[in-house]
Design a protein around this nucleic acid. Structure first.
Lengths: 168, 168
DNA sequence: CCCGGATTGACGCCGGTTCGCAATAGCGAG
DNA sequence: CTCGCTATTGCGAACCGGCGTCAATCCGGG
């Protein structure tokens, strides 16, 4: 009935252990959750573990898979509910890239996304490239752009309609 | 069994007739379709009618509803197939705003979109505000942005955290 | 007028996400 | 340590937009 918590030394063999710095960050997040009337549950911890474990973009299903590796009966809907909660608290960002599932990552690793509408390649870009757009949207429309929640679509370098063989 | 075609003078009473300029444009599109090996079908015409009828953004279902007003048995999947086809031919653009259904509009009415992630308000903006972003993405990443296919999310003027709430 | 291929309607499936409900379990108070 | 309140969970089914299959139907060039 217990031992659901990620114990300090679990990482034997295949499992990549969460770094201790992350471990601390996770506790901080849980403290934040508690401060907002929430509770620290195993599922929550495991999800945070997965989120902190690697900084990459992952879909709800992928995160669920990771959580399941340690607690197979955490339900998908629980994952979704916790992701929603964590997003409300500003801990993570969710981004909808193209038509596929939404992807989630820590808000601290914030950045924009360029997604090729042909091959699906995703390029992470620093927020600075949105500076001008942000400014114009603000001054002209009073609109505050959040560059982390949407994907900029277009064609990546290799998928562009080439001027076929311009200069041999 | 017949009379599915929008006859030249149908617009009596409640139905808003498609303007004759649009009527011409529709024929042009159909000519284009034919040139690409496609055919001019009643469903196609009605869908174009709906698209030209008003320049606003509409979802597949909304367009279907409009088509159904004149031909109730046009199937939704036919709408989707035709929308897809028309997009391939460059006649229309589809844009995914937020989580809802995709919206479609004539490519000739091309523009960008700012969507408030709180109230859902959508602001149409001229392509020019993307100029800088387009340039930077191109020079730095070789990425050719298409500003018509995605929505820029953020907070509209009325949904922004007010300045009288200094987050102390 | 005929024929082949484009198009259609019917139907059901799909992936991603959400909802309703009853059971479970944090955690602060006592 | 126990208790109780309520947040949270598991479960399953619903939901939603969209797409695939297939046989029947229609367009339109010859």
């Amino acid at each position: 009935m217990r031992l659901l918590y990620p114990e300090p030394m679990t990482g034997e063999g295949t499992q990549v252990a969460t770094a201790s710095a992350d471990r601390q960050a996770i506790e901080d997040v849980l403290a934040l959750v508690r401060r907002h009337g929430g509770r620290a549950t195993p599922a929550r911890r495991l999800l945070l573990n997965a989120l902190f474990g690697s900084r990459e973009h992952r879909s709800a299903e992928e995160l669920a898979a990771e959580v399941h590796a340690q607690a197979p009966d955490v339900h998908l809907s629980t994952i979704y509910r916790n992701l929603e909660e964590l997003e409300r608290l500003g801990v993570i960002d969710s981004t909808r890239l193209g038509n596929g599932p939404a992807t989630y990552h820590l808000a601290s690793a914030a950045h924009g996304h360029l997604v090729c509408e042909q091959c699906g390649t995703m390029i992470e870009v620093p927020d600075e490239i949105f500076e001008d757009l942000v400014r114009v949207a603000d001054t002209q429309y009073g609109f505050a752009i959040n560059p982390h929640r949407f994907a900029v679509t277009g064609r990546c370098a290799t998928c562009q309609p080439r001027p076929n063989q311009p200069k041999t």
